[in-house]
Nucleic acid binder design. Structure first.
Lengths: 145, 145
DNA sequence: TCATAATAACTGTATATACAGCCTTTTGAA
DNA sequence: TTCAAAAGGCTGTATATACAGTTATTATGA
């Protein structure tokens, strides 16, 4: 028989709780970025492409723990906006992704807005607590390997 | 000009980091639940409906920090599988959602599998660290209000 | 060398998510 | 009492996400 106590235990679910907080944070950051037309997920992608410079989908997938097929779709949208572009790699199979000038330009507008959201969160938690939390999130992700 | 240092700062993004961990955790839990056909998100919904008993979409939305329109779609899928059902509330506008017998039955199968995934995470982190992390996730979500 | 493995990426399909806007019902104030 | 505002929920549309399966290319071992 299904017991209430069994159900109540699921309230402590790591996945459920982190997804809940993720929804709240995503809405918060997306709202701050609203005027740029960028979503936070897109900002993350652009930034990582900018930092890696000439990166393959596979490399991005490992770095961000995103399925390759998700990246195929997400990059397609960014490419349609001409924020990123890809060229053939030395290998016929691979494609190397980089930011376009338009991509760099939108980042210049978006970064200060992102910084506002980020500052609110970091200051709200306190720096020490915040960076400790980031470490715990990494540890959590590492447990799934 | 776009500086590498500005981009590097975004690597500490609360939203980006939590989304990354969420992807990893979701894949981990979903894989454990695979044989049931349930996704973790669906398990979360079923459990909360079971605990609340006769709950409206609006109440679930507040509890789980999920947009109402998302719940409309998610509940539709669960209803199609006959795991939940809804009846009219005292108010013509509201609908009350409950688990069906089939919904309760699938939970009985899914809960032990969920418990396996959960135990791996909790034991991997250590109980104290884990419950501390849950609190921090709540605090983080609260900062977005 | 050649057949097979592995690698890189893409397509089909499905769920999760949310914003904008809409309809219906209820509430509340003039 | 009546009408505007609020509440509850839904549809249209769009992005995010991943699994299963496919295609094309490269690497590898007999």
């Amino acid at each position: 028989m299904l017991q209430t106590a069994d159900l109540a235990r699921v309230r402590r679910c790591a996945c459920g709780n982190i997804r809940r907080t993720t929804r709240a944070l995503t809405q918060y950051y997306d709202d701050k970025l609203k005027s740029t037309g960028l979503h936070t997920t897109q900002l993350t992608l652009l930034v990582n492409i900018g930092l890696e410079a000439s990166v393959t989908i596979t490399q991005l997938a490992e770095l961000l723990l995103i399925d390759q097929t998700t990246l195929t779709r997400n990059l397609k949208l960014l490419k349609a906006q001409e924020l990123v572009e890809s060229i053939a790699g030395h290998d016929q199979r691979t494609r190397l992704w980089t930011l376009t000038d338009k991509g760099k330009a939108i980042l210049e507008v978006a970064l200060p807005l992102w910084q506002e959201a980020q500052a609110h969160i970091v200051e709200g938690m306190g720096k020490e607590r915040y960076y400790s939390l980031l470490k715990e999130l990494s540890a959590l992700a590492a447990l799934t390997e």
